[in-house]
Every structure is written in C-alpha cells, then in structure tokens.
C-alpha cells in the first residue's frame, strides 16, 4: 500500500481524481462542490512534499495562494449579490499576487530585467485568471478548461524538467475531469463560480510561470496556454446530450493544450522527431 502511495501517478493523478469524485459527489447539491479542485490539489501536496511553509519559497507560495484563492472564491460566491465588478477586481488581484509569489527570484535580476519580468508575470496571471473566470457559469466548460490547462501546463512543465509542477497540473486536471464526471452522473450543471475558476486560473498561471522561472520553460510559450480557455469558449450548443457536449469541450481543450506541449517538446528536443 505504501509503495502504491509513493508512485507519482497515484500521488498526482489517481488519488486526486478519487478524492475530487467523492468530494464533488457528496457536495454536488451545494455551492461547495467545486472546492473539490482545492481538496484534490491539497491531497497531491500532502502525498508529495507535505505542508511546510518555512522558508516561504516560491513553490510554497504557489500552494498557499492556490488554497487561499479557493477560500476567496467561496467568500465571493457567498456574497448576497455577485456584482459584475468582482471578476475584473479578482483578476487584477491575481496580477498583483503573481509577482509577489516569485519575488525572491525577480529580486536577483537586474533592476530593469526584474521589472519587465514582473510586469509580464502580472499580465499573464491577470489575463489567464480572467479568461478562466469568464467561464464560471458553465460547469462543463470549466471542467474541460481545467482538464486542458492542467495537462497542458503539467506536461509542458515536465518537458521543462519540473516534476513538481507536472504533478500540480495533473492533480488539477484530474479534479476537473472528476467534476465533469460528477456533472454527468447528476445530469446537471454544477455552477463552478469563483470557487473553482479563481484557484484554477491563478493556479495554472502560477504553475506555468514557475516552470519558466524555476525550470526550463521558455517565457514566450506562456501566451500559448491562453489558447485553452479561449478554445473552451468556442460554441458548444447547450441542447446537445451532456456527454456529447462534455466530449466536444474536452476535445477543444485537449487540441489547444497540444500546442504549448508541442512547443515545449520542440524547444526541449530541438526537433519534433
């Protein structure tokens, strides 16, 4: 049993999937169902590096921010009237938080290079978070986006030498896949709200940035990840059978995710062969 728990596929994929399935099913009729993402991610962290926040390294800040974002999402979703201004405000907050997460690395750069990198990081986190939050009323779109983003960022990360961010991405992908299944099982749209989209958008943005700053991913591949939420926003009629619509949206996400993965593969290998 212990050997099984120590396998990276179990730590990053299988157990987060099972945990998210159970959590999502138990809370399917509440507004907390999509907390399954944060719970699945926390499961992966507990099984791999554990919860330790001293010293507060960039990787640990990523964990902290993702879990805090889920709680912020719950609070915002619980607000009596979810005003339209919440999404832009939260996206701007994500843009401010992202450079703070990687401050220890940015501070070691020349002043101008550091500021340029911080501005780029802030812009990417802001746009990614906003792009994912725009999908927040449609559980199938968010599930598909999370599947594509988690796999896209995770596989690009491992091609860039970071297994830690691979496991993080795969854990979120597994959780989003689990929530797609839960929605199919309950034959209903479980509204993700900010509870899912804020940690998902900000989380994958931070995994991708971390793969650039702490591993070997080229910075100019970051915008390619934005193709995934854009692809998932493509038309998918609501009157289609749920399973067909989920498959179409997941297909959009996976095709879009293949682009940054292939780019990272090409950069790592120097050729596609």
């Amino acid at each position: 049993m212990q050997q099984l728990l120590e396998h990276p596929a179990v730590q990053g994929g299988v157990l987060p999937l099972i945990v998210a399935l159970i959590f999502g099913a138990v809370f399917a009729r509440t507004r907390y169902a999509w907390l399954a993402l944060a719970v699945a991610f926390a499961t992966m962290i507990a099984l791999t590096v554990g919860f330790s926040f001293s010293p507060l390294t960039a990787s640990r800040k990523v964990t902290l921010v993702l879990l805090a974002a889920a709680l912020v999402g719950v609070v915002v979703d619980s607000w009596p009237s979810t005003a339209r201004g919440f999404a832009p405000a939260l996206a701007i907050a994500a843009g401010i938080v992202a450079p703070w997460v990687f401050l220890s690395i940015l501070a070691q750069r020349e002043a101008t290079a550091g500021y340029v990198a911080a501005a780029g990081i802030a812009a990417f986190a802001l746009v990614m978070t906003y792009a994912v939050m725009r999908l927040r009323s449609d559980g199938q779109r968010v599930g598909a986006a999370g599947l594509g983003l988690g796999l896209g960022v995770g596989i690009a990360a491992v091609l860039s030498a970071s297994i830690g961010f691979l496991l993080s991405g795969v854990a979120l992908a597994a959780a989003c896949g689990a929530m797609l299944l839960v929605q199919l099982a309950f034959s209903r749209n479980i509204v993700p709200g900010f509870t899912a989209t804020l940690p998902l958008g900000l989380g994958v943005a931070l995994f991708a940035i971390g793969s650039v700053l702490l591993a070997e991913l080229k910075w100019y591949f970051l915008p390619l990840f934005l193709l995934i939420p854009a692809a998932v926003a493509l038309p998918a009629p609501g009157n289609l059978p749920r399973i067909v619509r989920a498959a179409i949206l997941a297909g959009y996400a996976c095709v879009a995710a293949a682009i940054p993965i292939l780019a990272a593969w090409y950069a790592a290998r120097g050729s596609l062969s």
Binding site: T57, I105, A161, S162, G164, A215, E216
Partner: peptide, 21 residues
C-alpha cells in the same frame, strides 16, 4: 529525453538554483 537529470536537479524539485543560487 526532453531534459537531463542535472537540469532536473537545478529546478525547485531539488536544489532550486534560481531561488537559492
């Protein structure tokens, strides 16, 4: 492979060379 073991050792999984040079 896409990356060498030494490249992996430099990442945040191990020595975290970017953050702790």
């Amino acid at each position: 492979r896409a990356r060498t073991r030494d490249e992996h050792l430099r990442t945040a999984d191990f020595f975290n060379a970017a953050e702790f040079p």
